[in-house]
Amino acid sequence: MSEPTAPGRGGDELLARLLGPGTPELTCEECFEVLDAYVELAIAAEPADERVPGMRAHLEGCPACTEEYHSLRALLAPEEGGGPR
């Protein structure tokens, strides 16, 4: 009998979760502090990642903060589906 893998999870996603972004990133507290401004910038197609260095890396590394980012974006801009630009 084969050993199970997590459903829908390939080796690349697993490596990303294990190794993280590997670049400087915000903490969860810092992420929450700037989340509202970052999402408004992203929706307005402003250079959110330039304005908030380390945010993108944190979102790549922290599944919980990423979910909240997508939720806030989807709540404010339901027409775009909440995806990252």
Partner: peptide, 12 residues
């Protein structure tokens, strides 16, 4: 460990 072993077998 089973997850890791599974990923090792299914990748390249």
């Amino acid at each position: 460990w089973a997850t890791l072993a599974g990923a090792a077998r299914t990748e390249r």
